[in-house]
Amino acid sequence: MQQPPIQQQQQQTSSPTEFLNNVIGRPVLVKLNSGVDYRGILSCLDGYMNIALEQTEEYVNGQLKNRYGDAFIRGNNVLYISATKLRE
């Protein structure tokens, strides 16, 4: 792939792999396409975006609905993974 030319390009780019290396072992928010949110510690994930979380909390419409010690989330349901720790 060619180098992105021009301007503010010395600001670090961050590939998905780098992003993931930074967030593994840290608290994440995983949002599903259905709108359901999971918060937990990201154990690991694979190329399908299958995700293993620890200390998982399930939020539906912003309300805590369930807790799971460990949880496997099937990647096709995942909209995004966020490193933020913000709580609403």
Binding site: I81, S82, T84
Partner: peptide
């Protein structure tokens, strides 16, 4: 919703 940094699934 504001988010600092996300990995967005490209599928959709």
């Amino acid at each position: 919703t504001k988010l600092e940094q996300i990995l967005l699934n490209g599928n959709n």
